[in-house]
Design a protein around this nucleic acid. Structure first.
Length: 880
RNA sequence: GGGCAGUUAGCUCAGUUGGCAGAGCGCCACCCUUACAAGGUGGAUGUCGCAGGUUCGACCCCUGCACUGCCCACCA
């Protein structure tokens, strides 16, 4: 082995070996299966810390289950990411002086595919660099035939069931992208705007209604003014008509309780074409809908002299014109929530357009039920996400699934040019229609829209397994748990692990769609939602802030395993993972520690030894018990989706028990290396799911493992480690005595090289004889006098349990230092003693606290009193 | 406006049935003791956001508040 941990020298080699030798593939040897479907990253994306986090967690679970003997499948894939990818290619075209509209749909799509071929492999290569043990032979792309087939089949079925419909609705229009986007893709941000107060005159100009609006440019599409029926201010306008300024159109004054009497003027202009709420009100009052802003974001002919201006910019001009005409009464500053396109950052225009929708209400019900009840079919980790889940699903809106993009799954619907009927193929039919289903005309053309990227993502758990075909994968790996039945087992057959930010975008939609198509069987039983990776100050990583940490940089510098351990350790139950590179260095140091411990063990262990468990003394027993507890703890933490806790337990045990104590004691005791060997083997296996590469590298260099790979070895479970059934009194006594004397030495500034002599008072000679070699060596005592009178004068005192050490100070230290040490020690004990006696003097404590606690407290008082008197006498013997 | 989380050592975070607060990094002192200086030994450091309440006992449970972050929402 190399002298220290150097990940660059083996990570790639190890990974390639695994992949080439098919170690990530599934094995039908076991009936028990475990499936994680990887959240498909954007095919043209580059790796960021969010990916690194999900890889760390998902790979840990995949490897853990694989080592536990499950037929384990981690299924990878990539997403076509409609908007993101299309925008990238469009930018490239722009740089080349052309555009998608100039080259046309077919040529454009060809370009995108070329782009995908060129950059599509990057992200999967990067995911490999992190050690991911996913089965690459099954990698799927959302536009691959397998996925496309599932998309088409689901669409045709949902259409036939009447769940998909087409309609003219008000939708969020991104003028930047020239497409509709879903509610989830709109980001609301508080924005400083103005509230304009305008006059809407009666026909005879005798009076006017004051209307407050933030968007004066939409007045050309006003179809009414609404006031509250009980608002006395506007009573005289009931059943009247008023003139819309500039447009000079008469519109009715309508009464609706939706209007807030207190806000603005209490009169609301109704513009169904450009406002979600107005649209609802318009529908309620059977008003017509006008649009004065086009899909290009510009005002149209309705706006008269302002036609052709970008709506957003026209506001000032219009306000000016209104002021000149003395229509504008006043304007006030006003803060409100404004919708922005998540992708492009441009302001979203609510516009009327023809779109495809998926009815959600009936689909959402099973998803709600799946998480309801005492023993729900789906469990969330952390559990609090369940509340958010219900909140959203119970208020769900229909999903606008059509996008006016070219890159994606083109909607499988054909429009007839003659009769305008829509023809959607029958479910199961793979041929495209050639005739109108209604009038049989052959002048039909496929809908030009594509489906929202999340539509294919929603089918991902079943499309990757081969649905709609009745595939064997589906039978083997898809859960049998139904949404409306109590959870049948604690173990999840399938785990969904992803970021909490896409709970609605993705997780909820998968549950709805897959459950619908799989006869009520849910796609996964456990949902583990990880936090968002931030920088060490908790701020979002962004290029503009310059705080982005590139996982590949980190991997190159410190190794993928170091990064994985760091991300796992920081992935607690909160909503953020604040990545602190200082901590990363700490975990790298930990790996190095293991590396060196292995080197030490290998020097000790006879190469021909066979692996078996066999404790040769109380030190071995103590270690084996520790290992047993550790493996219990880790398996249980992993089961509870607390990989951070599992790793933390591992860190503590391996460093502070195994390295600091066992290895040091081993150097003194020598003898059989069986336990040393077993412990090393076990510890390396325990860590493998979390730090796969270094553990595989180490495992390969253990002589007794031959050429076996750790990836397929058993994960240590509690029951495989024999019960020791011991209180480990000896080891605790060793630790206590050694720590006490070490403390004495340091506080008295005794050079570590100097060996001291000591006088021991004890009534438990048996125990002392059993531990003395270790205490003497580790505390550096060269001569010990047992139960003989210590010399008078300057002495130091150390006390542990039944052992009192008196240490002559001549030639060692100055008396003052020891006095100080004893004094502060005494103070501490007095404080503790006061606390405990105070408790015991409290009658209520004695009568109400658990009896064993009271007993414990009494024992503490006895022990402390003894210790105290011993220390006081030592202090007195120092004189003055 | 509603909801969800967080607030613990200088910094990043643990603390799961309530029983004298922990880790990493940083800090101080001493050690290159041959597995490891990416190390060893010992040490310092906290009104556990604020205010009440329940309890013999509260970082932990309850109530209210403050601050931070996120999500949802139709006050123009």
């Amino acid at each position: 082995m190399e002298s220290s941990y150097n990940p660059n020298s083996f990570e790639q080699k190890i990974y390639h070996k695994w992949e080439e030798e098919g170690d990530f593939k599934t094995s039908s040897a076991s009936e028990k299966t475990f499936l994680i479907t990887m959240p498909p990253p954007n095919v043209t994306g580059v790796l960021h810390m969010g990916h690194a986090l999900f890889v760390s967690i998902q790979d840990t679970y995949t490897r853990w289950k694989r080592m536990l003997g499950y037929n384990t499948l981690w299924l990878p894939g990539t997403d076509h990411a409609g908007i993101a990818t299309q925008v990238m290619v469009e930018r490239q075209l722009e740089a080349e002086g052309t555009s998608r509209t100039k080259i046309g749909r077919d040529a454009f799509l060809k370009k995108v595919w070329e782009w995908k071929e060129e950059y599509g492999g990057t992200i999967t290569e990067q995911i490999r660099a992190l050690g991911s043990s996913c089965d690459w032979s099954r990698e799927l792309f959302t536009l691959d035939p397998k996925s496309s087939k599932a998309v088409r089949e689901s669409f045709t079925r949902l259409y036939k069931d009447g769940l998909i419909y087409r309609g003219e609705r008000i939708v969020n229009w991104s003028s930047g992208l020239q497409t509709a986007i879903s509610d989830l893709e709109v980001e609301l941000k508080p924005t400083e705007g103005k509230l304009y107060y305008l006059k809407y005159y009666l026909e005879d100009k005798s009076d006017y209604l004051q209307v407050a609006t933030t968007r004066p440019e939409t007045i050309f599409a006003d179809v009414a003014v609404a006031v509250h029926p009980q608002d006395p201010k506007w009573k005289k306008f009931h059943n009247k008509e008023v003139f819309v300024p500039l447009a000079n159109r008469k519109v009715p004054v309508i009464l609706d309780e939706y209007v807030d009497k207190e806000f603005g003027t209490g009169a609301l202009k109704i513009t169904p074409g450009h406002d979600q709420n107005d649209w609802l009100i318009g529908k309620k009052h059977h008003l017509k809908t006008l649009s004065c802003i086009g899909k290009d974001g510009k005002l149209n002919e309705l706006a008269g002299e302002f036609a052709g201006m970008v709506a957003w910019h026209s506001r000032k001009k219009i306000a000016e014109s209104l002021r000149e005409k003395e229509i504008l009464i006043k304007e006030e500053k006003h803060q409100h929530e404004l919708g922005y396109c998540q992708r492009t950052g441009v302001v979203v225009e609510p516009l009327i357009s023809m779109q495809w929708f998926l009815k959600m209400e009936s689909l959402a019900k099973p998803a709600v039920e799946a998480a309801s009840g005492e023993n729900p079919a789906i469990r969330f980790y952390p559990d609090y996400w369940k509340k958010t889940w219900f909140e959203w699903l119970n208020n769900i809106q229909d999903w606008c699934i059509s996008r006016q993009l070219w890159w994606g799954h083109q909607i499988p619907a054909w429009h007839c040019k003659k009769c305008e009927a829509i023809t959607v193929p029958e479910p199961g039919q793979s041929d495209n229609p050639t005739k109108c289903g209604s009038c049989s005309s052959d002048e039909i053309a496929q809908d030009t829209d594509v489906l929202d990227t999340w539509y294919s993502s929603a089918l991902w758990p079943i499309s990757t397994l081969g649905w709609p075909d009745n595939s064997s994968d589906l039978k083997i790996y898809y859960p049998v748990q139904k949404y409306n039945e109590p959870r049948n087992t604690d173990e999840a057959k399938a785990l969904m692990e992803t970021g909490s930010d896409i709970l609605f975008f993705w997780v909820a939609r998968m549950v709805m769609m897959c459950t619908h198509f799989m006869g009520g069987k849910i796609p996964f039983e456990d949902v583990f939602l990880h936090a968002m990776v931030r920088d060490e100050k908790g701020q979002k990583m962004s290029k503009t802030k310059g705080n982005v940490v590139d996982p590949l940089d980190v991997t190159e510098q410190h190794g993928a395993d170091s990064l994985r351990l760091t991300l796992l350790a920081l992935s607690g139950q909160g909503r953020n993972v604040n990545l602190d590179l200082k901590r990363l260095e700490g975990y790298k140091a930990f790996i190095n520690k293991i590396w060196n411990a292995t080197k030490f063990c290998l020097i000790q262990i006879n190469e021909s030894e066979k692996l078996e468990v066999n404790a040769s003394d109380y030190i071995d027993s103590w270690l084996l018990d520790g290992l047993k507890n550790l493996s219990h703890q880790m398996n249980s933490d992993l089961k509870n989706y607390r990989p951070d806790a599992a790793f933390n337990a591992y860190y503590q045990f391996t460093w502070y028990e195994f390295c600091d104590w066992y290895l040091e004691l081993f150097k003194i005791k020598k003898g059989s290396t069986k336990t040393l060997q077993f412990a090393l083997d076990t510890l390396i296996r325990l860590l493998h799911p979390m730090a796969p590469m270094v553990t595989e590298e180490i495992y390969q260099s253990l002589p007794w493992t031959k050429d076996e790979k750790i990836i397929h070895k058993e994960y240590p479970i509690e029951s495989k480690i024999p019960v020791q059934n011991s209180e480990h009194t000896e080891v605790y006594a060793i630790k206590g005595c050694v720590e006490g004397i070490r403390n004495f030495r340091t506080e008295n500034k005794v050079n570590p090289k100097i060996k001291i002599s000591a006088y021991l008072q004890t009534e438990n000679l048996k125990l002392w004889n059993s531990i003395s070699p270790y205490v003497l060596e580790l505390a550096k005592i060269e001569s010990i006098h047992i139960n003989t009178q210590a010399p008078k004068g300057a002495v130091g005192r150390v006390n542990f349990g039944q052992f009192t050490f008196t240490i002559p100070l001549e030639g060692l230290v100055d008396k003052d230092a020891e006095k100080q040490r004893l004094t502060s020690e005494i103070k501490k004990i007095e404080k503790d003693l006061a606390f405990s006696t105070g408790r015991l003097n409290n009658e209520k404590f004695v009568s109400k606290a658990k009896p064993e606690l009271v007993e414990q407290e009494k024992k503490i008082v006895t022990d402390l009193s003894l210790k105290l008197s011993s220390l006081i006498s030592a202090l007195e013997s120092l004189g003055e």
